[in-house]
């Protein structure tokens, strides 16, 4: 049946279209106002960026980074404190990048070299990073007025650099996964670890790369988010990791690694974004939004799995 074929291959896209139409009708067209479409993009920038990195991590064999949300808060906090004390915006931005790389490197080392489970490592680092961020903020919400920072990451002034950042992040993920030779190694590693290693793929290097990439993207996300809000405060980023992971799974990335495309991830992010926004415009309570998000995640993982089954990989 041709229709079933089409549905099976593009179920995500179909779902996206249906849901968008649903909310469009419910909101009497308001969903499609230019302002709201812009909102959709701006409110989900962090998802696009973080999911791109998470995508690469998951591809390597089901590895995650649960700490990226806390890291966004930490990186933002450090940058704002520095600028508060008179540091130049450009320097602060460089420091942000460095911190992202360092965090990524530590994760990559522990997970790649020592083979510690990524869930546990990043759960622990999430805790540590959140603690440090709170200590730095001391309970205060900080703001920024550095020209360079706002120009690069801010929303209303001048050229929308933030858009470029999102684009770059996604395209980097595309390049890595589709075109670079590294990408083939990543897929191989995620697909079948044993054969990948025996054929000489350097597992440690790949995992280090994946996590450092994630770290860089986390720094970019930190800039973009804090630039948009103009502030950084305690509790920033609490749901970010889950949102990024959800986008990946809804987008059809195989949960144990080795399968998935970035286009799916973006579609997944957009889907969640539309649902969030649609519900928000309707005035639906945020708690119901969470329930729906959870259910969608379950359905997505289930259906993605059932539709793409290719035999037992495990016992």
């Amino acid at each position: 049946m041709k229709i079933r074929e089409f549905l099976r291959n593009n179920y995500l896209f179909v779902a996206f279209v249906l849901i968008t139409i649903l909310f469009g009708v419910l909101s009497e067209g308001k969903l499609f106002y230019a302002g709201n479409i812009l909102n959709l993009f701006q409110q989900n920038m962090y998802v696009f960026i973080l999911a791109s990195g998470m995508f690469i991590c998951i591809l390597t064999g089901g590895n995650t980074d649960l700490s990226c949300g806390s890291a966004v808060c930490l990186i933002g906090a450090i940058a704002f404190r520095m600028m508060e004390n008179g540091t130049d915006g450009a320097v602060a931005i460089l420091v942000m990048l460095m911190i992202g790389i360092i965090i990524g490197a530590i994760h990559g080392y522990l997970i790649g070299r020592f083979r510690l489970p990524s869930i546990i490592v990043t759960l622990a680092s999430m805790s540590i990073i959140r603690g440090i961020a709170n200590l730095i903020l001391g309970g205060y919400t900080l703001s920024v007025d550095d020209e360079i920072y706002l120009k690069l990451f801010g929303i209303s002034k001048g050229f929308p650099f933030y858009f470029v950042f999102v684009l770059l992040s996604v395209m980097a993920a595309v390049y890595i996964s589709e075109f670079a030779p590294l990408g083939k190694h990543i897929y191989a590693l995620g697909g079948n670890r044993h054969s990948a290693r025996t054929s000489g793929i350097n597992e440690i290097k790949i995992i280090m790369f994946a996590y450092i990439f994630m770290g860089i993207l986390t720094a970019i996300a930190a800039g973009v988010v804090t630039g948009r809000m103009g502030i950084v405060g305690p509790g920033l980023g609490e749901t970010y990791a889950m949102d990024a992971i959800a986008a990946c799974f809804i987008g059809g990335v195989s949960v144990s690694g080795g399968k998935g495309k970035i286009s799916g991830v973006i579609m997944g992010a957009l889907l969640m974004g539309v649902i969030n926004q649609g519900m928000s415009i309707q005035g639906l309570s945020v708690n119901y939004q969470n329930v729906i998000k959870g259910i969608i995640l379950v359905l997505a993982v289930l259906s993605g799995y059932l539709l793409n089954r290719e035999g037992d990989k495990r016992l």
Binding site: A246, Y288, N290, K293, G294, L297, V301, D312
Partner: peptide
Amino acid sequence: LKIPAWVTTLSGYLAFRGLGVA
């Protein structure tokens, strides 16, 4: 169904808290 544990329970993590709060 061989869906990896951490994903299944991750969905539970999201869904149940939302349900509980709702």
